[in-house]
Design a protein around this nucleic acid. Structure first.
Lengths: 324, 324
DNA sequence: GATTGTTATTGAAACGTTTCCAAAATGATG
DNA sequence: CATCATTTTGGAAACGTTTCAATAACAATC
């Protein structure tokens, strides 16, 4: 494998000149450039990216830290993030934290040791105090107080819209179903939106949250159906599509028909939801826009721009399906 | 940020010694080691991973090249691959090729330039001749003739089982539905298994393949239902679960009932398929085992072991659902 | 054809590690 | 205590790039 010096020697110029040619820097005479390019070609030279990173003390790697790529919402997000990063010449490192605090911290540590250029984080836990402030971070769906910008969809309005749509579909006794993640998670605003809208409509509502995220879903729904308001509820707003789908699945086992007995609205708008039956009515998150926005924000920060501390909230839309 | 030399000076030893302590090499006296560790702690020293990679001329990055992480089958695979890699101290770079030959090549190029330790490739195109032989590769679902080991599930047997199960469910006029990817793709064996089993059962069968992968699915099914054997077919083996789900969706629009009129068997066994309704009968691929096997094979190769050129085929299982 | 100003080029230094050879310390043996 | 074998240590060299101060080449002006 040939290196800069080989090229320089063959072309009869200095290494600095070759470097400038490679990096398309100005002030190289066309004739010299030509000579160098010829030598590069002849030697089949390719720049050693590792040496470059070393010298510059930074890589062109951006890490995406999320609970699980297996989750279709995150995999859609990852898809667009990778696409946007690739356009800008960055590579994506994927990290599954499982939502566990220890793993989230471990990855942050490892990533800063590896001098990644930046991190896009979808974290569930309160790891704020342990963050390495050296490294640019953009958070998705989670608000930090430190200098970490946040990109999220308009969860609050989404919650209100969901409730309103349930109401329009005739629901008078709505319930919110979800798992509690962090209180700092922006997704909690979905609940708030739901509650505020329900109250402004003067409705009796129920909030049924699962405090333990690792608890079995079956048990969760079991509790919900048996112990709680099995008969009374006529509408459900589930915190995610996946959760809504599970609810519907279970509801049918309890002889509850959707949408006849209970209307359902989800949240996310995962792509393949037309393959679920019944097709879910949902609040569609602008995944692509969120992805690209986060990346651009991060790259700005990497480029040294001032960190904009505001939370960027991208509007959501109701997508009607068969469950309302 | 402190470096090796700082530590060495503070500890009053040579840089070589510090390096040995960090790398847990033997032949460092316990007392010396202690001194060094103390200095490391005091200076808050963390090894510069980039410099390390540079010196060693290799990174601890492994790339996963696949058509789209958005696809639930691939995202499950990626989940386990990341997990296995992390255990071994490697990081995962994610690359979406979109299944496009140019993008696949582009990524291979970029990755070898970035000196990744290895590549796990799920590729659709015939890029064999352009592969950089320097870099360890393990292929998934795709057979290369060069020194690239392949991990796949037992697609052929899967195809036979699928046909057999359709037969058991009463199907006498089966059809295979799929898109043609590369002839080198192991997934093509699903078709072969289907055909062989159908023939050995003495059945009349239909193979309906879509030659153009970018062609609209709707048009594809339109052709299938209108132009072709709309009424006669009483069983369908679809090349993937997603494809099966789309078929069912469309079939219902044409007034065909599943499973009353047509039985359906898919392939993959994507996790959330219980959320699809009707629940798909399918051939479950051992995704986790495939993922871990590929990683181990790759890491062996990276460690310098001889490349085992055989194709590793992991058994599949029939998972009954509501469509047979 | 000096003089000055501009542009192009050179090559050494530096980035932080690992590795390796030589040297020093230690231990064992006669 | 001298000798040899072994273990432990020190520090220079090397990895391939970028950068920068110094120098060379060239152009323009008087």
């Amino acid at each position: 494998m040939s290196n800069l010096k080989d090229v320089a020697e063959l072309a009869g110029v200095g290494v600095g000149t070759v470097s400038r040619v490679i990096n398309n820097q100005p002030s190289v005479k066309p004739k010299t450039r030509e000579k160098v390019l010829a030598a590069i070609k002849q030697l089949n030279y390719v720049p050693n990216e590792i040496a470059r990173n070393f010298k510059m003390q930074k890589s062109n790697l951006v890490a995406l830290l999320l609970p699980s790529i297996w989750n279709p919402f995150f995999s859609e997000l990852a898809y667009y993030i990778e696409d946007e990063l690739d356009r800008e010449g960055y590579k994506l490192i994927l990290c599954n934290s499982g939502g566990k605090p220890a793993k989230e911290l471990y990855y942050f540590d490892m990533l800063s040791q590896n001098k990644v250029a930046g991190v896009l984080g979808i974290t569930y836990n309160d790891i704020e105090s342990s963050l390495d402030t050296e490294i640019p971070i953009v958070s998705i769906d989670r608000h930090f107080s430190k200098s970490v910008p946040c990109v999220t969809s308009d969860n609050y309005t989404g919650g209100r819209i969901a409730m309103r749509e349930l109401y329009k579909a005739g629901v008078r006794k709505p319930a919110f179903l979800g798992v509690v993640t962090s209180v700092f998670s922006e997704t909690m605003l979905r609940k708030k939106g739901f509650i505020d809208e329900a109250e402004s409509l003067g409705l009796d509502y129920i909030v049924y949250e699962e405090p333990d995220p690792v608890m079995d879903d079956l048990k969760y729904f079991g509790n919900f159906f048996k112990v709680r308001e099995r008969r009374e509820v006529d509408g459900v707003f589930a915190i995610t599509d996946l959760f809504a789908a599970k609810y519907i699945d279970q509801a049918q086992k309890y002889g509850i028909r959707v949408p006849q007995d209970v209307k359902v609205v989800g949240f996310d708008g995962i792509q393949d939801s037309t393959l679920f039956h019944p097709i879910l009515s949902t609040i569609r998150q602008p995944v692509e826009e969120m992805a690209r926005t986060s990346v651009r924000l991060l790259l700005n920060q990497i480029a040294g721009a001032a960190v904009s501390l505001e939370t960027i909230r991208i509007p959501v839309q109701f997508r009607p399906g068969e469950t309302t």
